[in-house]
């Protein structure tokens, strides 16, 4: 790659190759933070500065009211995410960080799908919902809303199946996760 401060002209291909951080390896990072203003911004800022794209982000309370849990998922990086987690540790309001191993982790996401379902295909949509153990939480003349819980992959699959019926809109929470067995997340 071109050296800084010299007049060498860089090709776009070279620049793009060097700037590509994605490998496809997914990370689920679980972060316990003190419940203080601005914490989330500091955390997302650290990822952004290093070129990581946060895929999903979920924030909620824990059993301790002064502590919140942030769960975020990332598409992995050429460089390990160690450098980011070390930087996260340096944030004063961050208490604990775990880069969760997918095989040791239960991850779940909740999604709401508003699907076109007028007369003709309603039964078929409801059948798909049943297979996915999706709950129908709202019905109108032309649409119904299905609530589905599961892994990211399951929700992706559900989406693929209902899309042909006409997907009006969809909302997903992003995954939350907890480790299997006795080990603490």
């Amino acid at each position: 790659m071109g050296e800084p401060g010299t007049k060498e002209i860089l090709s776009l291909e070279e620049l793009e190759a060097a700037g590509s951080f994605r490998t496809g390896r997914k990370h689920i990072v679980s972060i316990l933070v003190e419940n203080k203003p601005g914490v989330l911004t500091r955390i997302t800022g650290l990822f952004a500065r290093r070129g990581f794209n946060i895929d999903t982000l979920a924030v909620g309370p824990t059993d301790d009211e002064t502590v919140s849990r942030i769960t975020l998922t990332l598409d992995g990086a050429v460089q390990s995410i160690d450098q980011v987690t070390k930087q996260l540790h340096k944030l004063i309001n961050v208490l604990k960080i775990r880069d969760l191993d997918p095989s040791e982790t239960m991850a779940r996401e909740l999604a709401l799908f508003k699907i076109s379902a007028d007369g003709a295909n309603r039964a078929e949509v409801m059948q798909v919902c049943e297979i996915f153990r999706a709950k129908i939480v709202d019905v109108s003349k032309r649409t119904l809303v299905a609530e589905v819980t599961g892994t990211q992959e399951k929700i992706d699959a559900f989406e693929r199946l209902v899309r042909p019926f006409g997907l009006v809109e969809m909302a997903r929470t992003g995954e939350i996760a907890i480790t299997r067995g006795r080990t603490e997340t």
Binding site: P37, G38, T41, R42, G45, R49, L91
Partner: peptide
């Protein structure tokens, strides 16, 4: 100020 300086501080706080 907190937003502008966030990436360049060891820590920062706005008094609430």
């Amino acid at each position: 100020t907190i937003g502008i300086t966030m990436p360049i501080v060891k820590h920062s706080v706005m008094i609430q």
